[in-house]
Design a protein around this nucleic acid. Structure first.
Lengths: 130, 130
DNA sequence: GATGGTGCGTTACAGTATAACATGCCTTCA
DNA sequence: TGAAGGCATGTTATACTGTAACGCACCATC
């Protein structure tokens, strides 16, 4: 029998809040935005985030302690981001050559890779990447 | 006139504690280990860590909220790590091709790169990377 | 109608990081 | 000599991030 787990109103509230902004949001920012919708405490937010991440619908940005919606579901744990420290926006990086290079390194080093955290900080095209 | 900033006993205490272990340490683990040496509160540890990082003598592992000594000083912000989720060890990755690929992506995307956070989670050679 | 799985609300707490202010030690330079 | 400023530190308090542990409700199954 496959999983019994379902999508719930809380999951969708959090997901919708993430999608509404271009910037990653912290769990507490999400909480503030959803209090009016009945979300009252951190565990609710964290539980929904955990679920969205499991399901590939959101990602955690480790270097910001923040979360972002993932529109295009992807394959492995290969989620890579560019983060603009000026405007706060973050975008998913899709670069197969880069993914391949990471996998190649792991293979050469006999490292059994589970998850790659790749987050590039700087300034986006609009903010000064002239 | 160059910087007046000096290395102080606190910096060296923290640096020595980091070097004494193979595993990354959190700020509070460092604090516990250094209480007997007179370090009494978080700000002291965080200030020393900030300085060590500025000076290229330590790195922060974003996905662990932990810190590790950097023996070989390096060039840019290119610090990349493999992290074993079994034994807790972390090792610096030196892979020029990978660094180049990251820089290449940034260039193509007109992204002005300041700092790359690259942390690979999995199992090291000893722990199961058979 | 018992049982068990899953999600939720709530409280309390653990873990991570910094603000703000006071003190002391230098160096500089009048 | 001594006033002034920079830097590191000590101390207290607080902010931010994340989880444990409990109890309840719902729903499916048998």
């Amino acid at each position: 029998m496959p999983s019994k787990r379902m999508r719930t109103p809380n999951h969708e509230l959090v997901f919708a809040a993430l999608r509404k902004t271009a910037k990653p949001l912290t769990a507490y920012e999400l909480l503030d935005r959803l209090r009016s919708r009945g979300v009252s405490a951190p565990p609710t937010v964290y539980r929904a985030l955990g679920r969205l991440i499991e399901d590939g619908r959101a990602h955690r940005l480790e270097s910001l302690n923040a979360f972002i919606a993932c529109t295009r579901p992807h394959h492995g744990a290969e989620a890579m981001f560019s983060i603009c420290d000026d405007c706060g926006s973050a975008e998913e990086i899709l670069d197969p050559a880069l993914s391949k290079r990471v996998a190649g390194w792991a293979h050469n080093a006999c490292f059994e890779l589970d998850r790659a955290v790749l987050e590039l900080h700087g300034r986006c095209r609009d903010c000064g990447g002239a």
